[in-house]
Computed example of a mutant assay.
Amino acid sequence: MTLIELLLRPVGPWGILPFILLLACAGLIFPKVLRNPFTWLALFVLLTARIIVDWPLPDNHIYLLAYWCLSLFLSLRYSLDILPSTSRMLIGFAFALAVLWKAMLSPDYIDGRFFRVTALTDERFTNAVMLFGRLSPAELKQNREYLQPLPEGAELLNPPKLIEPPAFRRFTWVATWGALVLEASVALLFLIPIKKLYWYRHFALLFFCVVTYAFAPVAGFGWLLIVMGMAHIRPENRILNAIYIASYFAILLFAEIPWAGAILQWGT
């Protein structure tokens, strides 16, 4: 499923991308290529090259994807028994670092500015903001004009006003603190090495993925977390495996179908 992700969301500049796609296709067609550890080592090298070439602009999950390919190489090369614990630690540390960045290193996140600005300026959130934030298209346009940077020293004669109805404030508050609490929960559950937390880990990760990536326009990150979570499933838990697969495709549907926009149209 990692290879499917690489095909659905290709990554890399033109000099690297063809090789990533070639390996992904070959791995899906030929089982021997899929199980060959050097396939994953090559993908790790290509993804690392992509990070270097695009530095410092690569999406966060590209770093995690590179680490994941390296862990697959090591598991196939030496022992598959290390893969469940490796996936658990990668997920745990990824979420722990996300919490560190948001809670300790980014005051604009804690006070809500990050989501308030992102929700208004990122067009991918337009439908969700209109649906849950109760902003009209005209109000959203006015807010974007308000946030539009001006040349240094310039001032508008009649500057637009920022419109933030209570519903919008609630939406961004829930997004801010809900994400932080969920990420902290996942980090703790995956980093604490207690077997009794097994089911809680999977529930927390699945809940995070389904809720977060219904809104966040980064399906590639959601798919990667789903795949890594599946590596932590015990062989006898087939139903849990099916739930993960269903979640994988749910994220695909969220990414490709503007469900919030459809609800808005249906409501009108």
Rank of each mutant, 00 (worst) to 15 (best):
F254W: 09
L150E: 01
L41R: 00
G267K: 12
I163Q: 05
A250E: 14
I257Q: 07
P159H: 07
N36K: 03
I251N: 02
A96G: 09
L189V: 01
L70V: 01
G222Q: 01
P151W: 01
S75G: 08
M104G: 14
F207Y: 07
F125R: 07
M104I: 15
P137E: 02
I257E: 05
P258R: 02
W223G: 00
T48C: 07
N237I: 09
F207S: 11
I245M: 09
L74H: 01
L240H: 02
D59W: 04
S75V: 10
P149I: 05
S79H: 09
E145I: 04
A24F: 11
P217S: 12
L22P: 14
A167H: 04
A216D: 05
W223I: 00
L80I: 15
E139V: 06
R35H: 09
P235R: 03
A138H: 07
V33I: 12
P193M: 08
R238K: 07
E183G: 03
S136N: 03
A98C: 13
S79A: 15
V11R: 14
T2W: 03
F207V: 07
T48G: 12
R116C: 10
F207R: 08
V45G: 01
F93I: 09
P217K: 10
N127K: 06
W199K: 12
I243R: 06
T2H: 01
L34T: 04
G229H: 04
V181R: 03
A49Q: 06
F38A: 06
L225A: 01
A187Y: 02
I245C: 08
N60G: 12
G153A: 02
A138S: 12
A250F: 15
I243L: 15
F93H: 07
L17S: 10
L105Y: 02
F203Q: 10
D122G: 09
G229Y: 00
D59V: 10
T172R: 05
L41S: 01
